[in-house]
Simulated scan of single mutants.
Amino acid sequence: MENSESNNRTLIVDGMALLFRAYYAQSYGGYIRKTSDGTPTNAIFGFIHYLFDAIKEFQPTHLLCCWDLGSSTFRNEMYSSYKANRAEAPEELIPQFGLVKDVVDSLGIPNFGVPGFEADDCIGTIAYQISSETEVLILTGDHDMLQLVTDKISVIIMKKGKSNYQVYTPVSLWDEKELHPSQIVDMKAFMGDTADNYPGVRGIGEKTAHKLIKEYGSVLGVLENLEQLPASIKLKIESNTDMLYLSKDLATIKVDVPIECVLDECHWKINRTSALQKFEELEFSSLIKLIG
């Protein structure tokens, strides 16, 4: 993807998505890369590969990374079972959570995160804040982010394999899914999310949810036309209206988190000295070529 000097392009990296993806890719087969003192580094090693591959592919002028800080957020207060089905992070990954932020910082890339909010909310807020100044690309594996797509904000979904990306704009989102960005949330409100452990409307899956949204436009549109629906669907919705509203709230990425991003402070220029020091510390000799 070409980028002219006069045209700012900011890559916002979903740090958690990249780190988890890297951990599982790099521990496939049971081998965990470690430093000579026993510190696990496999996820960070893979994270750096993913990061530099995306930088090469999308040529950003500006770059930043967002993270979850702590396990509990305002969504847990809204719904105590939110993400309650998530397994504990693998033991070898835990020490890498803090260390990867040090690595990102050593590269000269700002880290962002706010306690009580998810990385998604920080990404959404910053994307909206800066999109009047720059084209925004969000790098993630999380399809929930598609709700953030606008004419100035694209979402890059990392797919299986190296350098395999799908870039979503309002046009490509409609072409593939026949949904507008805001309707991603309405879909989740009906079908729920097993990964995040909220049910939506019990008995309504993706196919029915899509049909409802396509016909009536939104959750509100469906509720205003309940009498038009088959009796079984109507009953399911009426029996789960509270959860429908709650699921919509849980699925909605906040864009008003108390966080501020100054675009000038995110200008991408690698800090080679500190990056080299950190790579040597982590025994990443094979990655030094990436930092020039």
Rank of each mutant, 00 (worst) to 15 (best):
V222W: 01
Q183L: 12
Q183K: 14
L212A: 07
M191D: 03
K188Y: 09
A195H: 02
E176F: 13
G200E: 00
E224T: 05
P199H: 03
E215P: 04
Y168P: 06
P181V: 10
G192F: 11
V185C: 05
P170E: 01
S154H: 10
E224F: 05
Q183P: 14
N225T: 09
I184R: 02
Y165W: 11
V222T: 06
L220F: 09
S218K: 12
D175Q: 15
T208K: 09
P199A: 02
L212N: 05
V201D: 03
S163L: 13
P170I: 05
M187C: 11
T169M: 12
L173T: 03
L173W: 07
P199R: 01
N164L: 11
K177Q: 14
A209D: 00
G217P: 08
G200A: 03
K211D: 11
Y216W: 14
V167P: 10
M187L: 15
V219D: 00
A195C: 10
S172F: 09
L223H: 06
E215S: 14
K152Q: 15
H180R: 15
K214M: 07
D186F: 04
A209N: 00
V222D: 00
M158K: 13
F190C: 02
V222K: 02
I156N: 02
A195V: 14
E178W: 03
K152V: 07
L212C: 10
I204W: 03
V149L: 07
P181E: 06
I153G: 01
L223A: 05
Q166T: 15
L220A: 13
P170A: 06
E176I: 11
N164M: 10
D193L: 07
S154L: 05
P181A: 09
P199K: 03
V201T: 03
S182Q: 14
D193Q: 08
W174V: 07
S172Y: 06
K207M: 06
N164E: 10
L223G: 02
S172W: 10
P170R: 05
I213H: 00
G221Y: 12
